[in-house]
Write a protein that binds this DNA or RNA. Structure first.
Lengths: 354, 354
DNA sequence: TTCCTTTATGTAATCGTTTGCGCAAAATGC
DNA sequence: GCATTTTGCGCAAACGATTACATAAAGGAA
């Protein structure tokens, strides 16, 4: 049985011989309404199976209680986790989350923002597409006075709050760790894109080498798209060198995984001959053999923090509170793929047993 | 500079000395408006930086162009992919997607549905929470005439369209494959929950054994929550048996991974001594060593198909088109963790080389 | 009694679009 | 040249909730 006529506050009002305004106030628990009326209203509301119409309220209030989230793709582990974190916080505050994928496509990003503005979201949380180098569409959001917070892939070209991890520090820690494990020819997989995260990771790599007096060798820095296949090719390329590297630090876990496959196919021992580290702590990294050392990006935390910063802005929309830049400290996750010393000891033990 | 007054069709109308209705029609490309007027309107719209207000339109039309998607958690690989697929289709049709997480919590699921109804979504796509055994909240959706389509975790208690994979077939294929690889004592990790997917996988397991005249041994069927730790424990339990199984088929990839860890720690060779298979084709399964045989659930496809079925319903809302049940054929992904014969051959080859 | 609060509710406008109906003017038919 | 259709647009009422302002009744103070 499908109810034909959607019940509104007017229906409730009629039934009680009061007006819609009283019903509205009663449902919103206004102090100006008597308890008796409130109870009566609620009773009839339940009885008629009344379902509030947020859209009508949104139109009147100029506030939809919906926020838009833009990510490159929703099924990349990192973004999925961030979305999860955002949704959790938003949900607790009675906000709904519209999710949009830009597919790292500038045009799509542009359209998406327009669509979100049309939908009258109360604000936008976004991670900028890889190929976006011009930010007018985001500026438009800011100019309309709509809260905007960026995470992970951010830009300083906009006067908005940003939440990211310290990619520099993460990379630095990795390389430092590799050096302490005795590695001296450390290769790095990076991206040619202008996305700051990769530039920061490269900077961490370079500075760590410098701080430990290890010469920088540009043959050891390979640029690619950092996917699995790219990692494989980059590793092949490294193996062509006169002298093999003794460690590879990939700016992505997938790149590292590609390298691992090649190394294993060639029976090159990890970490004894080549230590291997990635970046992101993608779920799969703990399941490889050997498990992959990587850098945790605190994805769910990032989602939550981003959402919190966002809602701060939302609440103080008039105060024009200034943009803040929150930099989370990433955590180095050390696993066997870089534990050379331990591996050596184990090997010695095995030797003795023989 | 923040624009104070939001520009509406009335502003455009005023500027052109026409009325808002004409502007509205012009923007919607109504045949009743002259081309000259249309062009003029669009020009002024652009000039004033007009941004349509979907909320007002939604109120008037009783149609929000937003759909709600409910998943247990947004960051589980499978659900993330489904969401991705849904968003892609929805986006092409100019719909936005609100994503909600139920966390497998019945209460939350209930509230979520209410929130979506309040938001006046045009329909709902959902995967039912693990602990949900009562479906009145979904019935309410149907009774309100709001399209509802379920995927993966569905129920026959509701007269709605469902999209799922043939869990029975997937499991059957796995077990058949294991048998063909020479396995005779095949263990199975399953769940005690009433969720049909696990029951179906168990049925596939049982029937495959029966069809190949292999006796069913209840000691080999272990119930757990199917997470990594559960897999470990279940494997330990199996190893206590007088006779070790020669294969383990876990109804989840994580469960299989737990088993793999235990087997490797004990230096039990996979697949020679114990073949191992999971279910879901989680991204990590291709990166384990050995790579894990599993069943692909076609997650993105499922998202797309679900969305397509959903939009069919949406378009024919009046026709009361009947609920359909779409069962996708899962694909068996054979990897080294079950390729016993190949492994044996390789071992023989290695022997000869020595 | 009169005036002033306080309390509880009603009136009506508003949010921005859409659309049925109506009405002129222009175009067409005969 | 007159009747009829077509074309192009305006009028005004929705959609459902919110809220500033008004109002009426009741209670209290003088």
């Amino acid at each position: 049985m499908i109810t034909k006529h959607r019940v509104t506050i007017h229906d409730i009002a009629e039934k009680l011989n009061i007006t819609a305004s009283t019903v509205s106030r009663a449902l919103n628990d206004s102090p100006r309404i008597s308890d008796a009326t409130k109870k009566a209203v609620q009773k009839v509301a339940k009885q008629l199976n009344y379902q509030p119409n947020n859209i009508a309220a949104a139109l009147r209030n100029g506030k939809s209680n919906i926020i838009g989230v833009i990510v490159p793709t929703a099924d990349r582990s990192f973004f999925a986790s961030v979305v999860r974190g955002i949704e959790e916080i938003a949900n607790n505050l009675n906000y709904k989350v519209i999710i949009c994928q830009s597919y790292d496509n500038y045009e799509k990003e542009l359209q998406t923002i327009d669509a979100l503005l049309n939908a009258r979201v109360d604000g936008i949380i976004a991670s900028i597409g890889k190929n976006t180098e011009q930010f007018d569409h985001y500026k438009k959001v800011v100019e309309k006075g709509i809260p905007l917070v960026l995470f992970d892939r951010t830009t300083d070209a906009l006067e908005v709050s940003q939440v990211m991890i310290d990619d520099y520090l993460g990379a630095y820690k990795v390389v430092e760790h590799l050096i302490k494990q005795g590695c001296r020819r450390i290769a790095h997989f990076t991206s040619p894109k202008k996305v700051s995260v990769f530039k920061e990771r490269l900077r961490g790599y370079v500075n760590a080498l410098r701080d430990y007096d290890i010469p920088y060798d540009e043959d050891l820095v390979i640029k690619s798209n950092l996917q699995l296949e790219d990692g494989r090719k980059s590793m092949e390329q490294l193996l062509q060198l006169d002298q093999m590297p003794d460690a590879v630090f990939s700016a992505s876990d997938y790149g590292a995984m590609g390298a691992m496959q090649v190394l294993k196919e060639r029976k090159i021992r990890i970490p004894e001959q080549v230590a291997l580290a990635g970046f992101s702590n993608d779920p799969f990294t703990s399941f490889t053999d050997p498990p992959l050392t990587t850098v945790d990006q605190l994805s769910i935390t990032m989602g939550k923090v981003t959402a919190e910063v966002f809602f701060e802005h939302l609440k103080s929309i008039d105060k024009r509170n200034i943009a803040q830049k929150i930099v989370l400290k990433p955590e180095l996750i050390i696993r066997k793929s870089t534990l050379r010393q331990e591996a050596l000891q184990e090997a010695q033990l095995a030797e003795k047993v023989h």
